[in-house]
């Protein structure tokens, strides 16, 4: 009974919003311009699903985000390990990263466009940069936070430098590295949509949204917004699963 009540309340709010939306859409042509009727939104969704447009754009965005995650994340982890282990590198690279990071990712866009054009390469560069920051920062923090307790065990058993690195530093940094990657995943997804909105070329959900906006197709924009949300959420959940699997040595509370 109680569960039913909370379920009803959970549905009440969206129902209210949808009802209001539908009502607005019937208030003459001027309103229907922004408030596409619900039925039309559903129809557009099915249409885009059927003719493969949704899959095409979603696939392009996904591929862009993941490729950039791979590039930016790899460079970020390598740089994080290097700056985490070497003080010289830390002192050289960290101020640069800190300064660069002050500029919002999309603020680089006009410059990148002028230097590298607005093709896929420029997009990939910016999205990779957005994935780079969180991975490098978290990896570095992880490598620097090696617990003295475990380092002593290494000393007891005569660990070489490479053994300490492989068996103590790297695994103890892993949870933070994973945190970095999961942040990078979220940032890369946001940045992907952002660059697609701003560089309207080739396929992608952002590009499609922008085109729909120009054509005043609220229904298509909404379908894309929902798609962006669902995909972002799914990516996040999948990564969390992967993390739990790979870090199964962690006690449940530590996550």
């Amino acid at each position: 009974m109680k569960r039913l009540a909370s379920f009803a309340l959970a549905l009440a709010f969206p129902a209210l919003v949808l009802g209001w939306w539908e009502w607005e859409s019937r208030q003459g042509l001027g309103h229907a311009y922004a408030f596409a009727p619900l039925e039309q939104i559903a129809r557009s969704f099915l249409e885009m699903l059927a003719d493969g447009r949704l899959a095409l754009h979603a696939g392009a965005s996904l591929q862009r985000a993941l490729t950039a995650l791979l590039i930016g994340g790899t460079i970020g982890i390598v740089a994080g390990v290097a700056t985490g282990l070497s003080r010289v590198l830390d002192r050289t690279a960290s101020p640069l990263i800190t300064v660069m990071r002050q500029v919002p990712i999309l603020g680089w866009l006009p410059l990148v466009a002028l230097w590298f054009g607005n093709g896929d390469g420029a997009k990939l560069l910016l999205v990779s940069l957005s994935a780079f920051y969180p991975t490098v920062l978290n990896t570095q923090k992880g490598m620097q936070a090696i617990e003295q307790r475990y380092a002593e065990v290494g000393r007891l058993y005569g660990f070489t430098r490479s053994q300490s690195l492989r068996m103590i530093a790297w695994p103890s940094a892993l949870p933070l590295i994973f945190t970095g990657i999961s942040q990078a995943l979220a940032f890369a997804w946001i940045a992907t949509i952002g660059v697609e909105l701003l560089f309207s070329a080739s396929a992608g959900l952002g590009t499609e949204m922008m085109a729909a906006q120009v054509a005043a197709r609220t229904d298509i924009v909404l379908v894309c917004v929902a798609c962006v949300g669902v995909m972002g959420f799914t990516l996040n959940q999948l990564f969390a699963l992967l993390r739990t699997r790979l870090l199964r040595w962690q006690p449940a509370t530590a996550k």
Partner: peptide, 22 residues
């Protein structure tokens, strides 16, 4: 040690192996 200081990222067997690495 008083706190066992087993490496949490290794299984028990791997932890014992740590002593034999070198």
């Amino acid at each position: 040690f008083q706190d066992h200081r087993l490496f949490p990222w290794m299984t028990v067997a791997k932890n014992v192996e740590v002593a034999l690495l070198n």
